[in-house]
Design a protein around this nucleic acid. Structure first.
Length: 303
DNA sequence: CCGTGAATAT
DNA sequence: GATATTCACG
C-alpha cells in the first residue's frame, strides 16, 4: 500500500500542478510602471471592478504605497487610479517602483533564460535582456537570481545526504520551503555542477510565438490563490464554485529524457531572438480572433 | 557590473 | 511571516 511516487511522476505533474497557463496571465510580460502609464496616459490597472476588470495584468504589481490607501468605500471623487500617487503631473520618474511579484510564469521565464545562457552567462543583465520583460529592471532580476541561487545550493547540499529519500532527488521538505522555486523544476545541470556549464540546448519546450492573451484572471486572483495556500489554506471551496481545476490544454510534456532537444532552433551558440524565448501556453482556443497583440511597451529608457 | 549579506519595506 | 527591494562591501 504504498503509492509509488516515482520521479517520473513528479516530473509529469509539475506543470499540471501549477496554475494552468490559461488561468494565468498573458504571455507577453509587459511590466508597466505606474508613472509610465500615466506619462503615456495609459489606463494601466484600474481599480474599478474587482472582478475581472484588468485588461493587462501582465505582472502583479503591488500598488504603489505612494501615499494613500483608498478604501473600497471611495472618496466622492477620485478614482484611486493613481490618486496622489503619480499626482498626474508629478515627476513620474523618481517614483519607486511597486513591489514586483514573481509569479510562477514569470519565474519560469527567468529560469528559461538562465538555462539558455548557462550558469556562466547567467548574470542579471543578460538574463534581464533575455527575458525581454518590459519594465523589469536589473535589480529585480539580480535580487531574484540571488534567491534562486541560494535555493539551488540548498538543494545540492541536501540531495547528497539524507538518505532516506528513495529515488527522489528532491525532498518534499525542501520544496515546501520555497513555493515559488518549487513550482519550477530546475532544468538539470543547475544542480550538480560546480563549475561551468556551456550553453545548453534547452528544455523540452516549444518555441512558440509568444504573445497571446486570454483569460481574465487578474493579478489579484493570483495573489488570492497564494494567500489561500499559505495563510488561510482554504476557506470555501477553491474548486467548488469556480470549477476550474487542473484543466490544462494539451500540453504533452513527454519528456522521458530531458536531454532531448526538440527545438527547431537552439544551437549551443544560442543567440535566440527576443521572441524565441518560449514560455508555454497554448492557444488551445482563441476567442475567435487570431490577433496577436504585441503590447510592446514603450522604450522607457531603462533597458 | 556582479555577488553576497544584512537591513528594510510591504 | 514571507518576499522583494535596497544598501554596504568586496
Amino acid at each position: 500500500m504504498r503509492e509509488e511516487e516515482e520521479s517520473s511522476n513528479w516530473f509529469a505533474r509539475w506543470e499540471e500542478q501549477l496554475p494552468s497557463p490559461e488561468e494565468l496571465m498573458p504571455l507577453s510580460q509587459t511590466l508597466i510602471t505606474p508613472d509610465l502609464a500615466i506619462a503615456f496616459d495609459i489606463p494601466v490597472a484600474a481599480a474599478a471592478a474587482p472582478a475581472g476588470a484588468n485588461q493587462n495584468p501582465g505582472l502583479s504589481l503591488h500598488h504603489p504605497p505612494a501615499s494613500s490607501r483608498p478604501p473600497p468605500h471611495s472618496d466622492p471623487e477620485s478614482s484611486d487610479l493613481n490618486s496622489a500617487a503619480a499626482g498626474g503631473d508629478e515627476p513620474a520618474r523618481t517614483l519607486k517602483r511597486p513591489r514586483l511579484v514573481w509569479t510562477p510564469q514569470l519565474h519560469k521565464r527567468f529560469v528559461d533564460a538562465v538555462a539558455h545562457l548557462g550558469i556562466k552567462n547567467a548574470v542579471p543583465k543578460t538574463i534581464m535582456q533575455l527575458m525581454s520583460v518590459d519594465g523589469l529592471t536589473r535589480e529585480n532580476v539580480a535580487s531574484h537570481l540571488q534567491k534562486y541561487r541560494l535555493y539551488l545550493k540548498r538543494m545540492q547540499g541536501l540531495s547528497g545526504s539524507g538518505g532516506g529519500v528513495g529515488g527522489g532527488p528532491i525532498s518534499a521538505a525542501d520544496a515546501a520551503t520555497d513555493q515559488l522555486f518549487a513550482s519550477t523544476p530546475v532544468p538539470h545541470h543547475f544542480l550538480s555542477r560546480g563549475s561551468v556549464a556551456g550553453p545548453e540546448p534547452f528544455l523540452p519546450y516549444m518555441p512558440v510565438a509568444a504573445l497571446q492573451h486570454h483569460q481574465q484572471i487578474t493579478a489579484a486572483m493570483q495573489q488570492q490563490q497564494y494567500y489561500h495556500q499559505r495563510h488561510l489554506g482554504h476557506y470555501g471551496s477553491p474548486t467548488g464554485g469556480g470549477g476550474f481545476d487542473h484543466a490544462f490544454p494539451n500540453r504533452a510534456v513527454p519528456h522521458s529524457g530531458m536531454h532531448q532537444m526538440v527545438g527547431p532552433a537552439a544551437p549551443p551558440g544560442m543567440g535566440f531572438p527576443p521572441t524565441t524565448l518560449v514560455d508555454d501556453l497554448e492557444p488551445a482556443k482563441r476567442g475567435g480572433n487570431g490577433e496577436r497583440k504585441v503590447l510592446t511597451l514603450f522604450p522607457t529608457g531603462e533597458e
